[in-house]
Design a protein around this nucleic acid. Structure first.
Lengths: 331, 331
DNA sequence: TTGTAGGCGTTATCAT
DNA sequence: ATGATAACGCCTACAA
């Protein structure tokens, strides 16, 4: 390329990249000029092929539209991008088979790392296959890190979902609430852990949930749960939801039914996504941005260790929770 | 690779990819077996190098956390991913210089296409430089498509932001509102166009905005605007915001100040992001998912045309707007 | 300081 | 039906 332009040859390589190899000012100038002339762009592909450093990293999320994943993605891309890495965005939609194919493609492109941001499904038949593939990929030099509970090779950077759940219900109880309803999530590990946490806090106070509604992390499932609550003769004192979106669903539909939150019942979510801030929803902050950023740092480090770190979470009390007062029961 | 394993040579290539070239069952078996043995993974990089088809596409957004961009990303990745393409996520944060470097990197990786999802800044000094680089990249075979107003080479897939703005205010007026306040956005083209639309609708009815507040697309800027409104002796009949987040800001702080929406004043946003649905915010749907999907199709098509298509938008009246009634003026 | 040569993993062309 | 061989664009010794 630049060889024909200038007069020198593959020495051009030395100047076009930061080689420590000595090169005279003159030739450097000539090469640079020629490169500009032909608007030369070096090929990351070819370079990757020979250096074994693709500077490509994959990020597999459930759904980038979910603010939780978006935050992780943002954190990840911020540090990866700054380091000159390209991040491959993959929406797996909670389907392990899709993750499977993404990992394959990532491997074809010699991605230096993959991070799994989505929680694993409970009792997933394809899980063994994924685990095998990931182990293989890992052995092949790919740095794999999970930022959600998965049974995969590689390091993990997690948040204590069970403790987060515990804190929610514990807080509700500390507010004087006793009749607590739970809104569950889909059949993925994180949702299960949060629900476990809810239950553990309840048990520690010799309580039981008055009811646990099905859910799937969606706003709509929150709405539905709220509908069910409204059909009962008596409202719960407080309702703990596995995530902010579903909490928003119950919050909005309860309000729509003229229930005063938090006066009549307290509502909490988990995640501290933007909406939570908008709605003044009490929740627990899960450091999702930091999860992504830390994952990127781990990938960039090149360390193939099996490290496991837990990032702190933090209860964020806002305006959808209040101390229990003497209040009218029932709708 | 598989050559040493089996006994044949680069004929292995023919079986490892869907070659039309005939190959006997026997050898095919042998190659496949050997490949499995060494858990062979073909190299997309090397393939890209020779075929000139990287199957890599770049998506440059402002901020993936913004639901508007997240939707676009989702649409894009859905179709690109299905077609076996890898999508490179780039957060430019409204900084043209960052877009610049992303385009460079994308070029290094022989990305087959780039899509610019973020609107261009008004009077951006780095714009010329970007335009030059993009033209160069385009000439170099990269398919560039913009899904927001930019002065770049390549095709565009847009939504009529001005019309969207027009529709908002027109709807407000049709509801009987006359004293209309506007919340502006940052110095980017889309925000300007939407504001223009607001103004045009007003003018068409011989009206003027009673006030236009500064803003930057953020929830906080909406809050601030609402604060200002509350400081005035009289509230507007309706307020039109350039996007949902800022509309949410005014909605929530007005409500917090015990203003009944939509009874006392109507509030509208633009975008129809998830929050809008949650809050029953009246807005206009911008088909952002489809924007991303269409962009991906354009990139995959390989067509290097300078096509320009406009996707339809749609007014979505919800519960933050109502016909003007005889109501108490002033706070 | 600069040039030569080999190879990274593929595909494509041409023989066999 | 299968085997050589030449690129693709780059890096890295090693030689000059």
């Amino acid at each position: 390329v630049a060889r024909g332009a200038g007069v020198s040859l593959a020495t051009a390589s030395r100047v076009l990249n930061g080689s420590t190899h000595p090169v005279s000012e003159k030739t450097r100038e000539r090469v640079l000029a020629a490169a500009r002339e032909l608007d030369y762009a070096r090929s990351g592909l070819a370079r990757a092929l020979v250096t074994k450093q693709s500077r490509i990293a994959g990020l597999i999320v459930g759904d980038i539209v979910d603010p939780y994943f978006a935050q992780i993605a943002r954190g990840f891309e911020d540090v990866a991008g700054r380091a000159g890495y390209l991040t491959m965005l993959c929406n797996a939609d909670r389907q392990t088979t899709r993750e499977l194919s993404y990992v394959s493609v990532l491997r074809e492109y010699h991605a230096e790392g993959v991070v799994f941001a989505a929680s694993g499904a409970i009792d997933d038949p394809a899980d063994d296959e994924l685990r095998a593939l990931v182990t293989q990929a890992s052995a092949g030099g790919m740095n794999v890190v999970s930022v959600a509970p998965r049974n995969l090779a590689g390091s993990t950077i997690l948040v204590d979902n069970r403790a987060a759940g515990y804190d929610v219900v514990d807080y509700l109880i500390s507010l004087g609430h006793r009749r607590i309803a739970l809104v569950a999530g889909p059949a993925v590990i994180t949702a299960g852990e949060r629900l476990d946490g809810f239950g553990a806090a309840l048990r520690d106070h010799d309580l039981e949930p008055i009811v646990v509604f099905d859910g799937d992390f969606s706003f709509e499932s929150g709405q539905e749960a709220a509908m069910r609550m409204l059909a009962e003769p008596q409202l719960p004192d407080g309702v703990a939801c596995v995530n902010d979106a579903s909490a928003t669903g119950v919050l909005m539909t309860l309000r729509q039914a003229r229930i005063t939150i938090p006066k009549q019942t307290s509502v909490m979510g988990i995640g501290d996504t933007h909406v939570a801030g908008y709605l003044q929803l009490s929740t627990v902050n899960l450091a999702s941005y930091e999860l992504g950023a830390a994952a990127a740092r781990q990938v960039l480090s090149g360390q193939h260790d099996e490290s496991h770190v837990i990032l702190p979470h933090r209860l964020v009390p806002r305006s959808t929770t209040a101390r229990r007062s003497i209040r009218s029961r029932g709708v």
